[in-house]
Design a protein around this nucleic acid. Structure first.
Length: 492
RNA sequence: CGGGAUGUAGCGCAGUCCGGUAGCGCAUCUGGUUUGGGACCAGAGGGUCCCAGGUUCGAAUCCUGGUAUCCCGACCA
């Protein structure tokens, strides 16, 4: 393996691809567009899962599991939904293989054709709503708050590790409610959960907003989203929450008897985040030395590297280190002790930098003598020698908190500098090309104008921000009146 | 599905124009010296040169066909 990583400033996407591979997060699989998530990458995903799962449970949701295969007929029940997903579905047509009589190896047995073809889920609304029909009869069965952790398949033309793969892991929440108000509240509540997760754990500032008609989920009335900004100035949709209205209830005939005795269709929501968050995490914080992980999502918050010449020295260090590590662990800090003697300390330093471990503690003979350790923080690459005393654990704890805050602040400041208000289409184009980032502009609210901007500049409306101020203005393209600025950006 | 490129050791590549014993760096293994920022020396192992066919005394190299992957576009979380 060669040493340096490509520089972000020279080739951002090469830097990203190499980082994902070199930091042992994921690699390409034999199947085009699919990826193998390696143990270290999966460990980060597991941290994300843990926190999100906790937040879902705290907001009253339960996990369940629905099948991978969906009968073809289900998908077509909701018109907009099938329209949106038809072009990227993998289809199961047969259920058996056999040996080729002509010696051509193993072939699909033409005798074993399925009566009804099965779709590999691109998302689970259809199978879930067909099930909900049986689960819901009365207002007493509502709200129904279900989440599932699953894989889904969308046959994408062009793929990139984590950002867009043919198969990806995600969670999808699917809820049913007695009233529109409740369903909208749920949609927004889960959007808030995502935003809080992104900011608190991923140290990723996000903008909450509503998608335009063009960008809306197939089958939804409204799609809410959190949008994040990557270091190259491109936007990334980090999570979505959909208000489904009664669309799926009608398509799958899911009705309930209300308190008043009437028969009504239920109101639905669905919401999801995927392994794409891994891509967001990487692209938001990492640098030319490798991954930078916010402590709250790092599989190991601290790595300890002993430095020694003799076995005797190693023993002495082990003794001191053991106690230090046990104290750190008691304080809830995950620590990895790397005492392998197959690699030199310098090699380990570089390795853990590449892998983004927040804090590295090196301890050698000099430290033994002085009662100190060397502490290096990954976000700023600063090193300091500090005493291994009573306050040590608290110091490290505090350092990790500072780092979490610092990583967030850095991303936040970067984004602040990349939000630009523009008044004309000319200015818009120039900002997009010279600077990138989020561009705030007035828009006349029509899909045609959005389409035109997309064709001409490759920028799309990322969202209509929820906390945007009312501000009368004129559409930068058509000059028609607009009530509020929307966020344009080139996006992943 | 259009345009471009590339398939040679686990990884990254040279060799292909101009046919003649398959090479380099990293990684791996052995021995020794090392260990506070990716150590050094000595030695060793590892190849259907993407596949099939053709030309030739002889093909990684030339010809024909196939195939796979990557990049750039049209679609998407």
């Amino acid at each position: 393996m060669s040493k340096g990583l490509p520089k972000r400033s020279e080739d951002y996407s090469l830097w990203y691809n190499e980082l994902v591979k070199r930091a042992d997060l994921a690699e390409n699989s034999p199947v085009r567009g699919c990826m193998v998530i390696k143990p270290y990458g999966y460990a980060i995903w597991e941290k994300m899962q843990q926190e999100l799962d906790r937040m879902f449970k705290e907001t009253g949701h339960s996990n369940a599991y629905f099948p991978l295969f969906i009968p073809k007929s289900y998908l077509s029940k909701e018109a907009a939904h099938v329209e949106g997903f038809a072009k990227e579905c993998a289809v199961v047509t047969h259920y058996r293989l056999k040996n080729d009589e002509n010696g051509g190896g193993i072939i699909v047995d033409p005798e074993a054709k399925l009566e009804e073809e099965l779709i590999v889920r691109p998302t689970s609304e259809t199978v879930i709503w067909s099930t909900y029909k049986n689960w819901i009869q009365s207002y007493r069965d509502l709200p129904l708050l279900i989440n599932q952790w699953a894989n889904v398949v969308r046959w994408e033309m062009r793929t990139r590790l984590f950002l867009r793969t043919a198969e990806f892991l995600w969670q999808e929440g699917h809820t049913a409610h007695a009233s529109k108000t409740e369903a909208v509240e749920e949609t927004v509540r889960m959007l808030d959960v995502y935003a809080e997760f992104a900011e608190t754990f991923m140290a990723l500032p996000v903008i909450k907003g509503v998608k335009t008609e063009n960008e809306r989920f197939a089958g939804a009335e409204d799609t809410y989203c959190i949008e994040a900004l990557m270091q190259d100035g491109k936007a990334l949709q980090a999570g979505t929450s959909h208000f489904l209205g009664q669309n799926f209830a009608k398509a799958f005939d899911v009705k309930f008897q209300s308190k008043e005795g009437g028969l009504e269709y239920v109101w639905g929501t669905s919401w999801g985040v995927s392994t794409r968050l891994m891509g967001a995490l990487i692209m938001a914080h990492s640098d030319d030395n490798g991954l930078v992980l916010p402590p709250n999502l790092a599989p190991n918050k601290v790595v300890v590297v002993p430095i020694y010449r003799s076995d005797e020295e190693k023993e002495q260090i082990n003794e001191v280190t053991k106690e230090m590590i046990s104290k750190l662990r008691k304080a809830g800090i995950s620590v990895k002790y790397d005492d392998r003697d197959t690699h030199k300390p310098g090699w380990k330093f570089a390795e853990y930098e590449l892998k983004g471990v927040p804090v590295r503690i090196a301890i050698g003979p000099k430290d033994l003598e002085n009662g100190t350790v060397e502490v290096a923080r990954r976000d700023t690459l600063e090193k300091s020698v500090i005493p291994l005393n009573e306050e040590f654990t608290t110091t490290i704890s505090q350092l990790l908190e500072d780092m979490q805050a610092n990583i967030y602040k850095k991303a936040h400041d970067f984004r602040a500098g990349m939000i630009t208000k523009v008044e004309s289409y000319e200015e818009f184009k120039s900002v997009l090309d010279k600077k990138g980032g989020f561009v705030l502009a007035h828009w006349d609210g029509t899909p045609e104008t959005e389409e035109k901007v997309k064709d001409e500049t490759k920028a799309t409306i990322r969202c209509i921000p929820l906390d945007g101020e009312e501000e009368a203005g004129k559409c930068m393209v058509t000059g028609k009146p607009s009530k509020q600025r929307v966020i344009f950006a080139r996006a992943y």
